[in-house]
Amino acid sequence: MKILMFDTEYFWYDTFSKTLDHVEDTEKEEKIADNAVVFIHVEVEDEERKNKVVKSAVKSLKWYLNKVNKEKIVLHSFAHLSSSTSSPEFAAEVISEIKEKLENKGIEVHTTPFGYFSEFSIHVRGESLAKVFKEI
């Protein structure tokens, strides 16, 4: 798994086009202010170590939220951080489990619609920790 984390003033997105036939139809536009945004790429290798990957991702995301002093996070599936890509079904499952575990820890979690390309705008802060890449 690869995760790219941003400390943002805001993240705005609008669903643009559906990429997976089996996901439900949705049109969604949302702007979330003062949060962390995480681009998540689930790799084929993660399918053999799901529990470890989810646990490590949650730990890394909690660490990041503490470092940037945020209480909200947006999880965005972004299958462009590696040439190794898991099945869409597995990626959706992993992101859902990460969301659930973070919510159980009292964190406000937003997710962009899975299986869609989205138009987005992001205002990333300038500090060094505002942009962090992690391999899990």
Results as ranks from 00 to 15, higher is better:
Lys50Ala: 00
Val94Ser: 02
Ser86Glu: 02
Thr26Ser: 04
Phe11Asp: 04
Thr112Ser: 04
Ser83Ala: 09
Asp46Glu: 07
Val58Ala: 03
Phe11Ile: 07
Ser77Asp: 09
Ile32Cys: 07
Glu45Asn: 13
Val42Pro: 03
Asp46Cys: 03
Val132Phe: 08
Ile32Arg: 09
Ile122Asp: 06
Glu135Leu: 13
Val109Trp: 03
Thr112Leu: 02
Ile98His: 03
Thr15Leu: 13
Lys55His: 09
Phe120Leu: 10
Phe6Gly: 01
Glu9Gly: 11
Ile107Ala: 00
Phe11Val: 07
Ser118Pro: 02
Gly106Met: 01
Glu71Asp: 13
Arg49Glu: 08
Phe114Glu: 07
Arg125Asp: 01
Lys55Gln: 10
Gly126Pro: 01
Ala57Arg: 04
Lys131Trp: 08
Ser82Trp: 00
Phe117Asp: 14
Lys31His: 12
Ala91Gln: 05
Lys101Ala: 06
Lys72Met: 09
Thr19Cys: 10
Val54Ser: 03
Thr19Gln: 15
Val58Lys: 05
Ile73Cys: 04
Asp21Ser: 11
Ile122Ala: 05
His41Tyr: 10
Leu129Ser: 05
Phe16His: 15
Val58Tyr: 00
Ser96Tyr: 10
Ile107Asp: 02
Pro113Cys: 06
Ser118Asn: 14
Phe117Pro: 02
Lys28Glu: 15
Tyr64Lys: 07
Lys18Gln: 11
Val94Glu: 06
Thr112Phe: 05
Lys134Glu: 12
Thr19His: 09
Val109His: 00
Glu119Leu: 13
Leu61Gly: 00
Tyr13His: 13
Glu9Met: 10
Val132Glu: 12
Leu61Phe: 03
Asp21His: 07
Asn51Val: 06
Glu27Trp: 11
Trp63Gly: 06
Ala91Tyr: 04
Lys101Cys: 03
Glu103Val: 00
Val68Gln: 08
Leu4His: 05
Ser87Leu: 04
Lys105Trp: 05
Asp14Pro: 07
Glu24Gly: 05
Val132Gln: 11
Lys59Ala: 11
Val38Gly: 05
Ile122Val: 12
His110Lys: 09
Ile73Asn: 01
Glu97Tyr: 13
Ala91Val: 03
Thr112Pro: 01
Pro88Glu: 06
Ser60Met: 14
Met5Gly: 03
Ser83His: 10
Lys52Phe: 12
Ser60Thr: 11
Lys131Glu: 13
Thr15Gln: 12
Lys131Gly: 01
Thr8Val: 15
Ile136Trp: 13
Glu47Thr: 04
Asp14Gln: 15
